[in-house]
Computed example of a mutant assay.
Amino acid sequence: MQQFRFPQLIDLKQAYQRIMAYIHRTPIMTCSAIDEIAGCQLYFKCENLQKVGAFKARGATNAILKLPPELRQNGVATHSSGNHAAALSRAASETGTKAYIVMPSNAPAIKKAAVKSYGGEIIECEPNLKAREKTLEKVVEETGAAFIPPYDYMDVIEGQATCALEMWDEGIPFDAIVAPVGGGGLLAGTALATHFLSAKTPVYGAEPKGADDAQRSFKAKRIIPMEKPNTIADGLLTSLGERNFILISKYVKDIFTVTDEEIIAAMRLVFERMKLVIEPSSAVALAVVLANKEIFKDKNVGIIISGGNVDVSKLPFR
């Protein structure tokens, strides 16, 4: 496995200073009704209220702003099924450059629409990683755009870590933090920031059973790529990135999985009790707490609601 230089606390703080004019400082919200059900005090970090409706705005913006001007002038490119695509498109627009986005043909319509609304150019491909990467190679070759990976990239991890910086800046004595994991940028960044600011506080990953490569990789101590993931949490279909895996292995306490039924129930709870629009991937962290009440009993638990880009005409409940 490659050797990497991982960001230090000063790097995370500099990333926050770099991006703060381009993002929201999102609120932390509570809900006594859900606390009662969960048996603990929950603090929801609402990245569904972030620019582009997801935490991905942080990493994409940091990555573009760190590009030297000569590398930025031909635009940026990536492959993404949704939130990173929209985030990169917006960040490119905000910094005066172009975004080329390779998206699987089955990506949610709402996420394709978001990319277009931010000025991103969509190039569709077959819905598998090999097709994504091959199409992206062609786009980069033809345009000269700089590739910004969706999660397995240090500047992106650094940006995602600013979410946890904000959480700790609130002065809440978290006993645990739970974040969803797909490619692993958010979980890795959260664990890294928490290691620097409160090393004794455990960070847990939350993952769908139908896309459980992070949990299997974590337990096996080696990356086990996901084949044919199947879950309603479409934002968590991606296999764990190498850089993220190293950080998660080092700084994450454990990774738990939940069923789609548990994810839908948690999502519905947030809609009904908190009046917040969240996507299925965002409900996975709450679902994990509800499924493991004995671990979180009577604790102050931070939960990252990762995004709110759900097609409300296709909600998984009535």
Results as ranks from 00 to 15, higher is better:
Ile101Tyr: 03
Pro68Ala: 15
Val301Trp: 08
Gln2Asp: 15
Gln41Trp: 13
Ala114Arg: 11
Ala266Leu: 05
Met226Gln: 12
Val301Asn: 02
Arg72Cys: 07
Asp254Ser: 09
Val140Tyr: 11
Ser239Arg: 00
Gly241Ile: 00
Ile23Ala: 00
Leu49Tyr: 10
Asn244Gln: 02
His195Glu: 13
Gly159Arg: 04
Asn106Thr: 05
His79Asn: 14
Met167Arg: 02
Gly53Arg: 03
Thr190Met: 08
Ala161Val: 03
Ala145Asn: 03
Asp35Glu: 12
Phe4Trp: 14
Ala287Tyr: 05
Gly235Ala: 12
Ala283Lys: 08
Ile64Met: 02
Thr257Lys: 03
Glu141Phe: 15
Gly75Asp: 08
Ala86Glu: 10
Ala283Ile: 09
Thr30Ile: 13
Gln2Tyr: 14
His84Gly: 04
Ile278Val: 12
Thr190Ile: 09
Asn106Trp: 08
Arg216Ile: 00
Ala60Ile: 04
Ala107Asn: 05
Lys98Ala: 14
Asp35Cys: 10
Leu42Trp: 10
Pro108Asp: 06
Phe55Trp: 07
Pro104Thr: 03
Tyr100Asn: 08
Ala113Tyr: 11
Met20Ile: 15
Lys293Ala: 04
Gln8Trp: 12
Thr61Glu: 02
Ser282Ala: 11
Ser93Lys: 14
Leu290Asp: 01
Pro225Ser: 09
Leu237Asp: 07
Ile223Ser: 00
His24Lys: 14
Glu158Met: 13
Ile303Tyr: 01
Gln41Leu: 15
Gly185Asp: 07
Leu136Arg: 04
Ile101Gln: 03
Asn83Lys: 11
Gly185Glu: 01
Leu187Pro: 02
Ile37Asp: 14
Phe245Thr: 00
Pro202Gly: 03
Gln14Ala: 13
Leu71Arg: 15
Asn230Phe: 12
Leu136Pro: 01
Lys293Ile: 04
Ser105Gln: 15
Ala86Lys: 03
Gly307Met: 00
Ser249Ala: 07
Met267Ile: 12
Ile37Tyr: 13
Pro229Asp: 02
Ile303Asn: 02
His195Leu: 10
Leu71Met: 14
Glu242Gly: 11
Lys51Trp: 06
Ile172Pro: 01
Ala113Met: 14
Phe174Tyr: 09
Arg273Thr: 15
